[in-house]
């Protein structure tokens, strides 16, 4: 599970509303769209992002495709620590690089 994709999926209020609707029952794009004042294309985009976060899955119901909530991605609370740990490793490496550059520039100015 890519935590970044879960973050992205959860960041939008419309997507959170969609998740709550899907918590009640699985729905097609059309059924989801009826409940929002946004275009079907916009709903489709939200559903794709939710799928990328593994928060929903798509299944066939007759000729229709329906979206189903996958609560497992929400339960992976232990992974958040790992995500931010990696985040800070990256930031601190960038900070070290920036400070080193600054010190080199100061030394050059002194010469």
């Amino acid at each position: 599970m890519d935590v970044q994709n879960v973050f992205r999926a959860l960041s939008d209020p419309t997507r959170r509303d969609i998740l709550m609707m899907l918590a009640e029952r699985e729905m097609s794009i059309g059924e989801v769209s009826e409940r929002f004042e946004i275009t079907r294309a916009a709903v489709k985009k939200h559903l794709i992002i939710l799928r990328e976060g593994d928060l929903i899955s798509v299944h066939s119901r007759g000729r229709e495709k329906v979206n189903r909530l996958e609560p497992d991605a929400l339960r992976g609370a232990a992974d958040w620590i790992g995500y931010f740990s990696g985040f800070w490793d990256g930031r601190l490496a960038a900070l070290q690089e920036a400070v080193t550059k600054e010190m080199e520039e100061r030394k050059d100015d002194d010469d």
Binding site: L10, R16, A23, P71, L74, R75, A77, W80, I81
Partner: peptide, 13 residues
């Protein structure tokens, strides 16, 4: 971090 994210997840769940 864990408390914040678990709280968010619980809010949805």
């Amino acid at each position: 971090v864990e408390a914040a994210m678990a709280g968010r997840a619980l809010g949805l769940l």
